[in-house]
């Protein structure tokens, strides 16, 4: 239980901070992530997004893992099927002749 206090305290501090002008909540930050990555935010939205990123360690960690997961997904692109059965090639070539 000892480490739940700092977390709840930090959350309370956040909830006060997020009400300041130009500040967004983590939930709002979440809804901007895709557009941020794709470069679809306006300069003002981008600034607000990056401001939250600077003050919020949770969202920083979250975005880093999100990007890492995306990179690992993209790496799947390089996987080729190694087993190619001869009868499949034969069937494809037979259909070509027909």
């Amino acid at each position: 239980m000892a480490n739940t206090t700092p977390k709840s305290l930090r959350r309370r501090m956040h909830s006060v901070m997020f009400k300041a002008p130009m500040m967004i909540t983590c939930e709002e930050f979440e809804s901007f992530i895709l557009e941020y990555i794709e470069g679809d935010l306006s300069p003002r939205q981008k600034m607000i997004f990056e401001m939250h990123l600077r003050v919020c360690a949770e969202c920083r960690a979250y975005l880093k893992e999100y990007e890492r997961a995306r990179a690992l997904t993209e790496a799947q692109r390089n996987i080729e099927s190694t087993e190619v059965p001869d009868d499949l090639i034969a069937a494809i070539l037979a259909a070509r002749g027909a």
Binding site: H14, F18, C26, A57, E58, C59, Y62
Partner: peptide
């Protein structure tokens, strides 16, 4: 999907990446 509390604050078990 990510979870948020009533004030829109992220509830996440943070990872050491």
């Amino acid at each position: 999907l990510p979870q948020f509390d009533d004030s829109g604050c992220r509830i996440e078990q943070s990872l050491v990446v």
